[in-house]
């Protein structure tokens, strides 16, 4: 795998992360499903997952970048796994909607596992780490991917602030605290 191909594929990974976060926004704003604290942590883990690919896209492939991604994916998988276990009992309807029969925390666990497997697969290709590969080209495709993920992360910050207000986030949120303060409907 050439360094340029690795950069391009990491940009594709950033688009995938952006798509996951945008899909979460879709369910939040269109269907009114407020994310719970563990859901927000999984979103944060997806954002953390993007740091390694951004480094690769902007500065070229290095094993350490994949290491960061694996660490972020392990933490995300742990959080998603806990939420899976919370709803594992027969008869438990789970939290939020299901997509293709699985709740979003289950899909999140699958995504984090896929990210770990993808990093392991990428690390098999040594040629991308060639220091004499020359200057890499970062085009519109790659820069747009970075901007997309940064923008979605900033919007997540605003949405989390509006949902939780300036206090701890409730375990089962039902309303946006900053928009509808307690006692004012």
């Amino acid at each position: 795998m050439s360094p340029q191909l690795a950069v391009r594929l990491n940009a594709v990974g950033l688009y995938a992360i952006g798509a996951v976060l945008l899909e979460a926004f879709f369910y939040q704003f269109v269907f009114g499903e407020l994310p719970c604290p563990l859901c927000l942590l999984q979103r944060a883990a997806f954002c953390t997952l993007a740091v390694g690919p951004i480094l690769t896209v902007m500065h070229g492939p290095r094993p350490a970048h994949y290491g960061l991604t694996i660490i972020a994916a392990l933490v995300g998988a742990f959080i998603a796994g806990r939420q899976v276990f919370l709803h594992i009992e027969p008869g438990d309807v789970g939290y939020g909607s299901a997509l293709l029969g699985y709740h979003f925390y289950t899909w999140a666990f699958v995504c984090f596992a896929v990210a770990i497997a993808a990093c392991a697969a990428f690390l098999l290709f040594d040629r991308q780490f060639d220091p004499n590969a020359g200057r890499l080209r970062t085009g519109y495709f790659e820069r747009t991917a970075v901007l997309l993920v940064v923008a979605v992360t900033v919007v997540n910050a605003g949405a989390a602030l509006i949902e939780c207000g300036f206090a701890w986030c409730p375990p089962d949120p039902v309303d946006y605290r900053l928009l509808h303060p307690a006692g004012k409907g």
């Binding site: 944060a44 993007a50 951004i54 900033v154 605003g158 207000g165």
Partner: peptide, 18 residues
Amino acid sequence: MNFAVIFLLLAATMLVAG
């Protein structure tokens, strides 16, 4: 607010990564 801080920190991390 804690989550907003984490997301802003992550956005800053991404910008520094650039």
